[in-house]
C-alpha cells in the first residue's frame, strides 16, 4: 500500500523525537537519572516487542526472561572470543531459534499449551545453564568486563527501539500483519482464507524473542557479574506483561504509555516498600487486568473518538 502523507509526517516526528532523546546523556547531571531512563527504555523495547506478538494473537507469553537471559549469556560467554556487534547478532539469532522451537512445539496447538510452556521456560533455561556451568564451565557466574557506560547502553537501546517501531510498523502494513489480525479475530476464518496460521504466529514470536535476546545482550555489561538467577529472573517477564497491558496492546505505541508511568511508580515503590515489592506488583497487575483491560492507549483512543463525535451530535 502506498505511503500516506500523514504516515510520512508521523515518521519524521518520531525521528525528531529520537534525535532529541539521543542528546539526553549529554545533559547536565545525566548520570543520576540515566539509571532510571535506561530501565524505562529497556522495558519499552521489551513490552513493545512483546505486544507485537501477544497483542494481536492474545497469546500471553511469560517467557521474556528466558530470551533476555539467553541474550545476556551469549554476550557474557562470547565476549573474550568475538567482537561485540557480532555477539548482538548471534543473540538475535539464538533468540529467534529458541522462539521458533517453542513456537513449533506449541503454536500449532491451542494457546493454553503455549502459555504453560512459556511459564516455566525461564526457570528451565536457568536450570540448564546452571547445570551446564556446574558440569562443563567450572564456575557459576561470569564476569562481563566492557568499557560500555550507561550512556552507551542507552544509545543502543534507543536505536533498538527505533528498529522495533519500524519493524512493527512494517509488519502492520504487510500481509503478515493482516493475517495475524484475522487470526486474532477468528482462527477458523483465517484457515479457510488460506492463511498458514501456525507459521504466521511462529514468525511473529521469533521477532519478539529475538528482540528480547538482543536487549539481554545489551544490558549484560550493566550486571558486571552475571549468574543464572539474575539473568533469568522471572520478575522481568512479569514486568513486561504488566507494562504492555497497562499501556494497551492494540497500538504500536501502547506499551510505551505503560512503561513510562509504571517504571516511575515502580521506582517509588521499590525504594519505599522494599519488603512488599512483589506483593504490590501483583496487586497492581490485578488492578490493571480488572480496571483497564484495554490499557491506557485504549482509554485514550476512546476519548479521542468521543471528542470527535461530540460536535457532530450537537449539530443534529
Amino acid at each position: 500500500m502506498k505511503l500516506k502523507q500523514s504516515d510520512l509526517w508521523m515518521g519524521l516526528a518520531i525521528l525528531a523525537a529520537f534525535f532529541v532523546l539521543a542528546w539526553l546523556p549529554l545533559a547536565p547531571g545525566a548520570d543520576g537519572w540515566l539509571s532510571i531512563v535506561v530501565p524505562i527504555t529497556m522495558y519499552t523495547v521489551l513490552a513493545t516487542s512483546w505486544a507485537i506478538f501477544s497483542g494481536p494473537t492474545h497469546y500471553v507469553s511469560l517467557a521474556t526472561a528466558a530470551f533476555f537471559g539467553v541474550g545476556s549469556y551469549t554476550l557474557a560467554l562470547g565476549l573474550e572470543s568475538l567482537p561485540y556487534p557480532v555477539l548482538l547478532i548471534i543473540a538475535a539469532i539464538l533468540g529467534a531459534i529458541m522462539a521458533a522451537l517453542v513456537g513449533w512445539a506449541t503454536l500449532r496447538l491451542s494457546g493454553v499449551y503455549f502459555v504453560i510452556f512459556t511459564l516455566g521456560l525461564a526457570e528451565l533455561t536457568r536450570q540448564v545453564f546452571t547445570w551446564y556451568q556446574n558440569n562443563m564451565g567450572g564456575t557459576r557466574g561470569s564476569y562481563v568486563f566492557t568499557d560500555l557506560t550507561d550512556a552507551h547502553i542507552y544509545w543502543q537501546l534507543l536505536a533498538l527501539a527505533l528498529l522495533v517501531y519500524l519493524v512493527g510498523w512494517l509488519i502492520n502494513r504487510s500481509r503478515l500483519g493482516f493475517a495475524i489480525r484475522i487470526i486474532g479475530g477468528d482462527e477458523s476464518v483465517a484457515k479457510h482464507s488460506g492463511i498458514n496460521v501456525a507459521w504466521s504466529k511462529i514468525v511473529l514470536f521469533m521477532v519478539s524473542g529475538s528482540v528480547a535476546a538482543v536487549v539481554g545482550a545489551i544490558l549484560a555489561p550493566r550486571f558486571v557479574y552475571i549468574e543464572p538467577s539474575m539473568a533469568f529472573n522471572p520478575q522481568l517477564s512479569f514486568m513486561v506483561v504488566i507494562m504492555a497491558l497497562l499501556g494497551g496492546t492494540q497500538r504500536l505505541w501502547g506499551p510505551l504509555m505503560g512503561a513510562i508511568p509504571f517504571a516511575f511508580v515502580w521506582e517509588i515503590i521499590a525504594s519505599n516498600f522494599p519488603a512488599q515489592t512483589t506483593l504490590l506488583m501483583g496487586v497492581a497487575f490485578l488492578l490493571v487486568v480488572f480496571y483497564i483491560p484495554n490499557g491506557i492507549s485504549g482509554v485514550l483512543i476512546r476519548w479521542y473518538h468521543k471528542a470527535r463525535s461530540k460536535p457532530g451530535v450537537s449539530h443534529e
Binding site: R175, F178, A179, R181, I182, G185, D186, S188, V189, A190, S193, G194, I195, N196
Partner: peptide, 18 residues
C-alpha cells in the same frame, strides 16, 4: 463467522490475499 473488530471491507479482503 465474520471478524467483528474489522471493517466490512477488511473482512472481504481477507478472502483475496492468501
Amino acid at each position: 463467522r465474520v471478524i467483528p473488530s474489522m471493517t466490512v471491507l477488511e473482512n472481504v479482503m481477507a478472502g483475496a490475499v492468501f
